[in-house]
């Protein structure tokens, strides 16, 4: 078996001359330069995936999935809570007619999100010309997050207002 070839930055080299490069020893990478996915991106993705899995595996040690009493069509629990990702929808439902809160609003949001790239024809990706798009998206996002948090943590029996530090009714 021949000697292992010496490889520097993915290229075989015949030899290495010691010394300092004339422009200094720190190389500033070019952001637009293309690099090999293997290993540069794969390593990062692997670490990211492992970190997320580790988080799940640790959280699962400490927090058990809930299991309430067996389903009973004769008793509606009070409060009746949807899963947390629908808590915003449920909060809307307590204020508006189901056709509006349950169908029109979520339907418009989903269809609007799908149509977004065709409505927003501004080719600019950064900066001030995107103010309208960014503001619209942010308003929807923040409104949705607030509704979700209210529905999830601030609602108690009869869908009345409770402070989560007084009584906790959130369900995961």
């Amino acid at each position: 078996m021949a000697e292992e070839p010496l490889v520097v930055e993915g290229k075989r080299v015949l030899g290495v001359v010691p010394g300092v490069p004339p422009v200094g020893d720190r190389k500033i990478p070019d952001e637009q330069e293309s690099v090999m996915v293997w290993p540069h991106l794969l390593v990062r993705h692997a670490v990211a995936a492992l970190a997320v899995l580790l988080l799940v595996l640790i959280v699962a040690i400490f927090f058990d999935a809930p299991l309430r009493e067996i389903a009973n069509p004769a008793v509606t629990p009070n409060p009746e809570k949807a899963p947390w990702y629908f808590a915003g929808l449920q909060e809307l439902l307590s204020h508006y007619h189901p056709l509006v809160a349950g169908i029109l609003v979520p339907g418009t949001v989903v269809l609007g999100a799908m149509a977004l790239p065709y409505l927003d024809r501004n080719p600019d990706r950064h900066g001030r010309t995107r103010r309208v798009a960014v503001a619209t998206f942010t308003i929807f996002l923040v409104a949705w997050i607030i509704l979700t948090i209210i529905g999830f943590a601030f609602r108690g029996p009869d869908w009345g207002w409770v402070w989560p530090w007084n009584a906790w009714y959130g369900e995961l």
Binding site: P73, T76, E80, Q90, L93, L99
Partner: peptide, 17 residues
């Protein structure tokens, strides 16, 4: 369980609108 049953009752009732 109760959590599941009533969340789905409400969710599917919503579709009827």
């Amino acid at each position: 369980d109760q959590l599941a049953y009533w969340a789905v009752t409400v969710g599917t009732s919503m579709a009827a609108y």
